[in-house]
Amino acid sequence: MESTTLALHTSSLVFYGVSLGVYFVTRATRALPQKIAVWPALAGLFCQLVLLLIRWKAGDHLPVTGLFETQQFLALWVIIAALYFAFRYWAYNFFPAAVGLAIAALVFASRGPMAVTPLTPAIDTPLFLIHIATSFAAYGLFGVAALVGVYRLMGWSGSPINAERRMIDESIYLGYILFTWAMIAGSLWAYLAWGSYWTWRIKGLWSWILWFYYSGVLHVRNRSGWHGWPLDILAIVGFVLTLFTYLGLGLLFKTSHPLL
């Protein structure tokens, strides 16, 4: 299993690398349309999906436990969002940023053990799987929103039809909904496993901070004065908060959600 995992993991990384290379070559030479960079990325996504299915079958549960699997899942959502934007909004110029984020997640995933391990009784519940899957999907979408925010702030064109605002909206909106489900599943799980849907632990508290932060963003995003750079800054700060909640707390504090 580990050799298959390594092969598919490496293949997806290579395909995403090729996708980046193709994008920059076509951009520099203008010999071919930039959209052909999508095809190697689709091949990389295919490798990731095969890996997900193989590990799902081997472990008999959705593979979203541990550093390797969660980062794989995050990268999967980033690529899916980038492909969706590419096909719907012709956002090929945004593609390299999203693929770069997915590559970063996959490289980070390489630090985690790749063996398929059985679930311990504490995490052997659908609530855990929903909690983790929706959390990392949301993290990926918040990351995509932040990247679109950077594009808008820098004045780069991500989409020839100026759909950047739409992209940032969709990423934050879907990310927020998924994160809400993550909070619901996590709270129900905590109630059944530990006796309370609300625990005064630093990871849970910062997850609430993140949820309220994006609640605030959703409330102001359609208000006059917030359409432009303030929304971009909010999206970027939101992802910084996300990274701190996920990585910062795991590295700096002893939490109920260890990083490795």
Binding site: W208, F212, G216, H219
Partner: peptide, 23 residues
């Protein structure tokens, strides 16, 4: 909504700083 957002920001800052300091 602005009232809610201002309160949310204050809530986040208070909880964020307080939780880290308490830890």
């Amino acid at each position: 909504p602005v009232t809610f957002v201002v309160l949310t920001i204050l809530w986040c800052v208070d909880l964020g700083a307080g939780s880290v300091a308490a830890y």
